[in-house]
Computed example of a mutant assay.
Amino acid sequence: MARMTCEILAFILTISGWVLVCSTLPTDYWKVSSIDGTVITTATFWSNLWKTCVTDSTGVSNCKDFPSMLALDGYIQACRGLMIAAVSLGFFGAIFALVGMKCTKIGGSDSSKAKITCFAGIVFILCGLCAMSGVSLYAHRITSEFFDPTFLEQKYELGAALFIGWGGSSLCLIGGVAFCFSMVEEGGSPRTIYSYNGATSVISSRKKGPTSSADRKPGRGLPRHFDKNAYV
């Protein structure tokens, strides 16, 4: 019962984290132009892994997709690869988790299902690490440019997609560890159960020779009745 509860909780955490990680890819605001030190703001610049946009004071946005993948900065290409890898790993981790969970009817014996569950936990841990690395790499580039006094171009701040990615990757890591922990609980030594069958009266086994009715004395041939608290 404890293992099943742990697996259900881990499955909810990992699926929620995977959905959040997937939602970061189409999210627009990975970085937003900073208004620090600007008196009059006429436009807001923002971008993600696929395009860069500008929104004027009237609310009209003009976006431009990145023209070439090979001409992109290295950190954007690395973030793309890490986030796509995280989404793929989360998908396969969800399949392994459904097969290995104790509450499902597929996957074989309990020992084999426990191994599949542990493997699903490792996959989700890798998913969380990939997503955490991609989001942190993008955030590191933004912060390094923001605090660099020699950087004279437009400076940006952290967008909402980065915080969503951090939250989703954290849930994947916690859920993956919980999946592995459920196998540790299953692999523990079984508890020995002792049952009490009550006290057993022991009657001394004396060999008695055959006696006739004539040899019997009054009172000796009658069976003896012992009290329940008397033991021999």
Rank of each mutant, 00 (worst) to 15 (best):
T42Y: 01
S136C: 11
S189R: 12
D110W: 10
V99H: 01
C118M: 11
G121S: 13
G165D: 04
V32C: 03
N62G: 03
E157K: 15
M83N: 06
S111V: 14
Y138F: 15
I8R: 05
P26L: 00
L72K: 04
R224S: 12
K102W: 02
C103P: 08
D65Q: 08
G59V: 05
A78M: 05
T44K: 02
G198M: 05
G167P: 13
S111C: 05
N48C: 09
G221N: 08
N48H: 10
M183K: 13
F45V: 03
W18C: 08
I125H: 02
N48G: 09
G59W: 01
A94R: 07
G74D: 13
C180V: 15
K228P: 15
G198L: 06
P223Q: 01
T58P: 04
P190E: 02
R206Y: 12
P223E: 01
S33T: 11
G59Y: 04
S34M: 00
T143L: 07
G128Q: 07
F179T: 11
F151W: 01
F146K: 15
G74M: 02
A131L: 06
C172I: 08
V21M: 05
S112L: 12
V60E: 09
K31E: 12
C180Q: 11
S34Q: 03
I193T: 11
W166S: 04
K31Q: 14
S170H: 01
T58G: 01
S195F: 07
A71I: 04
F119L: 14
A160T: 15
T200Q: 07
G168T: 14
S133V: 04
C172A: 13
K64G: 12
F226N: 14
A230G: 12
T192Q: 05
N62Q: 11
T117G: 15
V99G: 02
G188R: 13
I193L: 11
E145H: 06
S109N: 14
G167A: 14
L25R: 09
F146G: 05
G90T: 07
R206C: 05
S133D: 02
K217Q: 14
G175C: 04
V87T: 14
A43E: 14
A86N: 08
S201G: 06
C103L: 09
L13W: 03
R3G: 07
G134D: 11
W18P: 11
G176C: 07
I116Q: 09
I142W: 03
G198V: 09
L20T: 08
Y156K: 12
Y231N: 09
G37M: 02
F45Q: 05
R80S: 06
A131N: 09
F147C: 02
T143H: 04
V123C: 12
G81E: 00
Y138A: 14
S189N: 06
L137C: 05
L126G: 13
F179Q: 13
G128S: 10
F66H: 05
N229D: 15
A2G: 12
Y194A: 00
P210L: 01
K155A: 01
D28Y: 01
C127W: 06
A85C: 10
L20A: 13
F66Q: 00
S111P: 12
D36I: 06
